[in-house]
Write a protein that binds this DNA or RNA. Structure first.
Lengths: 229, 229
DNA sequence: CGACGTCTGGACGCTGGCGCACAGAAGGGG
DNA sequence: CCCCTTCTGTGCGCCAGCGTCCAGACGTCG
């Protein structure tokens, strides 16, 4: 069985088969930009092995990552709300496969499957909570804790303790200086929680990393499990 | 004609009449707590003259306001997503009237009106964008700019340049110290942009306040107009 | 194998906001 | 009318993160 997307796995098999038959499997490459804020949504994506960052740009600043979409979610939910523009800058963070569907076809399929409608609505409710959580987190928590959270979230979505990301890129996601990331990361490494080398990061001691990270990580997971499971 | 809620005004008159007949008009008092995170949603509210803060609590911190709901929105959207729990702490910020509907009845009405479904879906899309905007704003912008934004948003929803709020409360909303608010507010007052006295704040020079405030205020309004208008 | 680009690691002073503590001013209730 | 609560204003030392610059380490590609 090939790796799947959890939203689609939740569908009854008839709806799922029907939906999958309309999808194409594409490989997303690191750094690919899938949507720009304000631009029309051409495709929706259901990551299977890949994952995607949602970044909110701010004038005069680098932008801030407000969401991470992996096999537990989808990119382009706005479409299911009847809005054809993306509010976010979406950039591929973890290379890998995703299922893709063009906008018109997605809307068509959505209209045909009330099961899909239900799953996506609940997913949107989760996203609402996660956005709020992220807002509070990036306001209050120190870089080290937020870095830990990011690594855990990415590790989950990469289905692997190792993935590719530079300090520079992390700084962009977290909305801090690159130097700040280097400092936090080297501290985590010194304590044996993670390892890294020229853009490849490895989670070494997951449990310890969880204890360093803020409660937002656990909160997110709890909400997801409660609403979706 | 009594003051209305803009979401409901957007409905075709038949649907609107039907929906309104199921609503009760209630007065919301300053400080009333309407939902707690994780608690079941008993009622949904469509403010007409009142407005409501959505606050995301964070362990070890005071919490952060992530949204403001006035006559342009509603409280309890999660219900329309099939989720009966509120992710937020919702507290009445501006005293006044609102239309209230109990949860079961709301779901029933929603099922009957596809126009209402459409409006609320678009509203949710707006909220998604606003949450992201707020996340970035509270990460990057200085207290003074954020305060200005908050005052403008509240002024809009209060339909009046004057409304009641103490520095203490503002600090809670913005996730900063009360002293930080006092400093920013007194600076704005010294420049003649606002006035205040023991909890009553007045916007004196709206245009100047807009120029002090970050672009997030304008961005929010633009998105709302584009998606809802 | 050498040169260049990329990635990581320090160092500098600076500042916005923090935590705390205290003092004056305005109102409201007994 | 006085006391007590609430609200606003100020002054401390402190620190996380900022902006900037430079240096070393690693890889890759010509």
């Amino acid at each position: 069985m090939p790796p799947a997307n959890r939203l689609l796995s939740a569908l009854p098999s008839k709806d799922r088969r029907r939906f999958l038959s309309g999808c194409e499997s594409v490989k997303l490459a690191f750094g690919d930009v899938l949507t720009e804020p304000g631009d029309p949504i051409r495709h929706v994506y259901f990551p299977t092995q890949s994952f995607i960052s949602l970044v909110m740009p701010v004038s005069g600043h680098s932008g801030l990552e407000v969401g991470l979409v992996g096999d537990e979610g989808m990119l382009g939910i706005s479409l299911s709300l009847g809005v054809d523009r993306s509010p976010f800058h979406a950039v591929v963070q973890g290379e890998g496969m995703a299922l893709r569907l063009d906008a018109a076809r997605f809307c068509h399929e959505l209209a045909l499957s009330s099961a899909l409608q239900g799953v996506l609505k609940r997913y949107i409710a989760v996203v609402l909570g996660q956005l709020a959580q992220t807002a509070a987190c990036s306001r209050f928590h120190v870089v080290e804790a937020r870095l830990a959270r990011w690594l855990l979230m990415s590790g989950d979505r990469a289905h692997s303790p190792t993935f590719h990301v530079t300090h520079d890129f992390l700084a962009y996601m977290l909305g801090v200086r690159r130097v700040g990331v280097t400092k936090a990361a080297s501290s985590l490494r010194a304590r044996g929680l993670i390892g890294y080398r020229r853009g490849d990061i490895t989670i070494v001691d997951r449990a310890a990393l969880e204890s360093v990270c803020c409660g937002c990580y656990a909160a997110d997971n709890t909400v997801y499990a409660k609403v979706m499971g």
